[in-house]
Simulated assay, not measured.
Amino acid sequence: MHQKLFSALDRFVILSSKHQEELSKLVKRQELPKNAVLQELGETSNYLHFVEEGTVRAIYYQDSKEITAWFGFAGDFVSSFYSFVSRKPSPEKIVTISDCKLISISYETLQFLYEKDIIWNKLGRLITERYYMECQERILSLQSMSAAERYDNVLDRRPDILKKVKLGHLASYLGMAQANLSRLRSTWQNRQRINN
């Protein structure tokens, strides 16, 4: 029933059928339409979600301008992680940008699992370490890469991204104006045509 979730977790820790059954009883499946709010800005994040299908976007505001902090795609674990871990208000709002199927677990349930069995503790640690590395890579890309390098990097990691997100949202995520991203995109497409 939760095969996509178990396959994603197997990248970190192979769960026994007993552990899979235990987790299945504790998680909640939900389907949300496009433009649904998964996490409100300023509210404490109480759920960790696995994206079975669809795409979500995290937003924060700077001088009343909407900025994309990150995207979550099928196979990703998403939450306002800072809020989820610290139990402080979320600095970001999370919205669905397509119809989504999610599997969610509450903060309280996760703490219960951590106390119950070391395997859940290990799994939580490994997922947190992965999230930390991705955050560091994002910070380094914004600080040390040119706009063109950031765009190339995103396309290397997720070639289909422009089929899933709006150009303006991607530009915001990459820290550039939409017009600049449009130029980079044209240059990239021309390079692809020349190389093929």
Rank of each mutant, 00 (worst) to 15 (best):
M1G: 15
K4D: 12
S7A: 08
A8L: 08
F12G: 10
I14V: 14
L15G: 05
S16Y: 11
S17G: 06
K18I: 12
H19R: 11
E21T: 14
K25H: 14
K25A: 15
P33W: 03
K34G: 04
N35F: 13
L41C: 07
G42E: 05
T44Q: 04
T44E: 09
S45R: 02
Y47V: 07
V51F: 01
E53D: 10
G54F: 00
T55W: 05
T55R: 01
A58T: 05
Y61S: 11
Y61W: 06
D63C: 04
K65C: 07
E66G: 01
E66K: 14
E66V: 01
I67Q: 12
F71H: 03
F71C: 03
F73R: 08
G75V: 08
G75W: 00
F77G: 00
V78Y: 02
S80I: 04
F81V: 09
F81A: 03
F81S: 03
F81H: 06
R87K: 14
P89G: 04
P91T: 13
I94K: 00
V95I: 14
I97E: 08
L102K: 03
L102A: 03
I103F: 07
S106G: 12
Y107S: 14
T109D: 14
L113C: 06
K116D: 15
K116P: 09
I118S: 12
I119E: 07
W120A: 03
K122I: 11
K122F: 07
L123T: 04
R125E: 07
R125V: 06
I127E: 00
T128N: 08
T128V: 07
E129I: 07
E129T: 10
Y132K: 06
Y132L: 12
E137L: 14
R138V: 07
I139T: 11
L140N: 12
S141W: 00
S141Q: 02
L142N: 12
M145S: 10
M145K: 13
A147F: 03
A147R: 07
A148D: 13
R150P: 01
D156K: 08
R157F: 04
R157P: 02
R158N: 13
D160H: 01
I161T: 05
K163A: 11
K163G: 05
G168M: 01
G168K: 09
L170A: 02
S172N: 00
Y173Q: 05
A177T: 13
A179M: 11
A179P: 08
S182T: 11
T187Q: 14
W188M: 10
Q189H: 10
Q189V: 13
N190K: 15
R191A: 14
Q192T: 10
R193Q: 13
I194L: 13
